[in-house]
Every structure is written in C-alpha cells, then in structure tokens.
Design a protein around this nucleic acid. Sequence first.
DNA 1: GGCTAAGCTGTTGTTCAACAATCCTCAATA
DNA 2: TATTGAGGATTGTTGAACAACAGCTTAGCC
Lengths: 214, 214
Amino acid sequence: MARSTAQRIATELRARVERGALPPGTRLSEEALGRELDVSRNTLREAFRLLLHDQLVEHRLHRGVFVRVPGLHDVTDIYRMRAALESAGVRAAAEAKPGLREAVTRAVTEAEWAADDGDWSEVASADLRFHRALAALAASPRIDTAMDRLLAELRLVFHSMPSPRRFHQPFLVRNRLLERLLEQGEYARAEAELAGYLTDACRLITDTMREVHP
Amino acid sequence: MARSTAQRIATELRARVERGALPPGTRLSEEALGRELDVSRNTLREAFRLLLHDQLVEHRLHRGVFVRVPGLHDVTDIYRMRAALESAGVRAAAEAKPGLREAVTRAVTEAEWAADDGDWSEVASADLRFHRALAALAASPRIDTAMDRLLAELRLVFHSMPSPRRFHQPFLVRNRLLERLLEQGEYARAEAELAGYLTDACRLITDTMREVHP
DNA sequence: GGCTAAGCTGTTGTTCAACAATCCTCAATA
DNA sequence: TATTGAGGATTGTTGAACAACAGCTTAGCC
C-alpha cells in the first residue's frame, strides 16, 4: 500500500462523512481531529486539501473546513450532471464490453433482492451501483470518477433526509425497465426513459427537501 | 482578495503550466519553488494538493509533483467526456437563456476574425471558448467546472504538439455549421454534427501524437 | 433599551527546523 | 552483464511558534 499518511487520513475522513458519522455542517477541527487521529496539523491540512476534490467538504478561509450542506441548487445541478454522464453511458451501450453490461444487470437484480429482504439501505447502495454502472458503459475513466464524486455527494444529500424507502421503492421497477430496454437494444427508448427517471427522482428529492427544511 | 497564500501560489503555478512556462514532465521542486516564490515548503505543498484538482499536475509518492504528460489514452478519454458534456449542452439549448446562446455565436465569430488576422493562438482559445459555451448551455455549474478542467488539460496536450493552425483551420467552418444548426433549432442534427466533430478532432490529435512521439 | 466600537478568545494561516523514509545514482562486485 | 550497496538528495511528517483573522463579549454612548 504505497499511500502517504495524508492520503490515509483523507480516505478515513471521507468514509466517516459518507457513513454519516460526520453529519453535514460539522466543522472539522484541526486540533481535535489531529489529536484523535494522531497526526500533525500540517498533514491533517494536506488531507483536507485532498478531501476538497470530491466536494464532500468545503473550506472557508480562517474558519476551517466543514462537511458540506447540499442545498436545492446542488441537487438539481447534480442531477443535470448525472443526466449528462449516464446518457453518455446509454448511448455507448451498443459498443460496451459484455462485462460492463453485466454489471448493470447485476446491480438491478441485487437491488430487487435487497428490497425483498426489506434492507432499504442495501437497496439504496445497489441503486447507486446501478447508475454508476450505466455511466461506466461509456468506458471512460474520467466519467467514472466524476460519477463517483456525484454519487458521494448524493449520499450526503440523503443523510439530511428521512425514509430511504420512499426514495427507492418507486424506482426499482423503473430500473428494471431501463435495464430491459438496454438488453433489447432499444437505446433511444432507454435514453428517454432515463431522462424521465432522473427528472422524477430529482423532483421527489427537492420536494422533500422543501418540506423538511424551510 | 479573500485568498490564502496557498491559493495564490496554486493559481500562479496553474497559470505557468497553462502558458507553457512549465512544460509537461517538469518536476516542481519544493525547495527551489519555495525559494523562488518565497513561501515555506508546507504552504507550497498545500498549493500542490490544490493543483491536483485539475489534473494539470500529478503526484508520485516520495518523488514530488510533476506537470502531467498526457498520453493517447488521456486524449481519447478527454474527448469522451467532452462529448458527454457538450451534447448535454446541445440538448438543453432549446431552453437555454439568450445570453448563453449569444456566447456560443460570439465565440465562433471571434474565432473567424482571429483566423482572418492569422492569429492562430487566438483562434485556438476562441475555439475552446466556443466549446465551453456549448457545454454551458446546460446551465450547470458542475458541468462548467468539469468542462474548464477538461479544456485546461487539452491545452496541456497542445503544448507537446506542433502547428496549432493544423488543428483549428479545418474546424472553423464546422464550428459555424454547428452554431447555425443550433440557431435554427435543428438540435438533433446539431448533436450528430457535434459527435462527428469530436471524433474527427480526437483522431487528428491522436494521429499526430503517434507521428511525433513513438 | 438599543446601538456601535473596542477588546478578548479561540481558531486557522504560515513559517521554521529537524528528522525519518524513500528514491536515484553510481561505483564496486560477482 | 547483472546485481548489490553505500551515499546523497528529495520528499514525508512532526512539533512548536507566531501572525492574522472571525466571532463573541463588553464597555461606552445616544
């Protein structure tokens, strides 16, 4: 494992944020975190700059770094970008390697299994895997990492919202529909379905945010 | 003015890289740069981590940071991502604000003027502005910054290649065609033209890279 | 009471010097 | 020729120190 201390700390903090141990809005104190993780302030600051990459955290001058609190604009923007990346994947589906297409099918199936078990947390993560697999059809490393960042941000959005079931239940069947269309080579219809899917999901989230938060 | 020293240094270095003052492959020595820019090693390192964001620079453990040397795979990948982002813009063109659409037209016109003057460096940058304006039609900050990063990387590619004229001359007329299609509301044809444009441009670059570099 | 302004406090921003860990070079060896 | 092993140079990390700043508190004023 050829990784510097700063990189290790960065991934540790990233994990904490994504798992919700550091809720949105939390300030990451240099002194406290440095003491807990047993690294110097300088290395911790380097880790912070690395974390900045994936928008999970923001930096306010002379005030420190905070776990980001995504707003309405962030959500709609994230979904615009998702639409761009995932439809790029769908459009490249015809020439995609079999392994990449299988990953799409597998994610849908696993989401359905998890739903049968009532494990909505696993449904959520399988859903994200499904969409990442869609974007991955484009066979582009840059698209993959961009997509990973978007989904990590989205996980942040979900942390400040209730009832994962409400968000994923209605989309299970649409995921399967989308996968079928791809399997049957109906790429144009798949792209249209994807567009509808994303606008609906985005609206569901933003509506809920308006309810919960003023 | 609310910028830390590390941020200032980062933008200074970014400017040097984009202007070609620090050619691809250059190692950024902490000691030398720190002495020249009159900052401590620690702040310089923070600036390096910030620079890492936009892929202009890469970090090898225990060896330092180097100006990236984009390879063939990078170029094809950059163009895949460009296709995703720019076609997202084209597909959103119908609902785009007038100001965004004007920016597209303006960039094409300025590229043509520069070509008339024989100023191929300005043609190049107007061309990049044109494509950035295309992506900007999507009205998404995340798409904008992603696009900026891609174009900065692309500038890096051009630095290790000869004859800017060869790369931009053939595409002036296609830029104008694309702009016309958009203006006339022929979005489907515009998207097709864009796809062709990008694959051709990508091929031209990779072919040249194969000639110049083994 | 309500307001502004000065001071206080805790945090981040930046520097410095030192040491540990690692890579590269180059010569000596088999 | 290929390998090994010091030696030197650079990065990785630390701890301490001080400066600079944001936010809060308090004192003074109307």
